[in-house]
Amino acid sequence: MPIKYLLPVAALFLASCASNTPSCVGPQSKNLSQAIDTAQSSLMNGCHAHFDRYYDDLLTIAEGDPKPENKRAFSEFLVWSSDKGLLSNRQAQNYYNRYFNVKFMSMKGDYNNCSHTCPNKQKVLFNMERELSDKERGLLRVSLDNDGYYRADQLFQEVELVLEATCSACAAGR
């Protein structure tokens, strides 16, 4: 095929691609369940790369109408995301637990504390502190779970104390 025909065809092809690019705007509704519907439809139409932003938008919308049922809405949204292959099961668990569970995902690890946690103690505690502020958002400001947030805060303080002692004992044994 002569080159003079190829160029317009390629241009037409590129133009068609450009016109199909999704806009990926965040959900506009202030109602969480409607916002979740919009987010789901956008995510299924090519916006999955913006998952983090959609999740954050949904949290902001939920903060506008905090209630214990919001936990379930987020859980169902994440299970749906995992079922549709937008997230792996582990990612879905991370998204949920980081915001709505008392336990800290920053305290995950397969090796013992002396060898793994103690050498990175400061980093672990720093990550926990950041996670605690996400829990404040998820537990306290989105789901009104004051007890849960208080327990997470207490757990953070206990981990800080126990790690200080344990790591000191580990260091003394070397």
Partner: peptide, 29 residues
């Protein structure tokens, strides 16, 4: 205490099990 902490919490536990011990399976309480 140093010996106990090193062995029981430092060497026998991962960060996750330590967390579970502290929370005592009563996260929602």
């Amino acid at each position: 205490l140093e010996k106990g902490l090193r062995s029981e919490l430092g060497q026998k536990m991962t960060p996750w099990t330590l967390q579970e011990t502290l929370i005592g399976g009563k996260a929602e309480q």
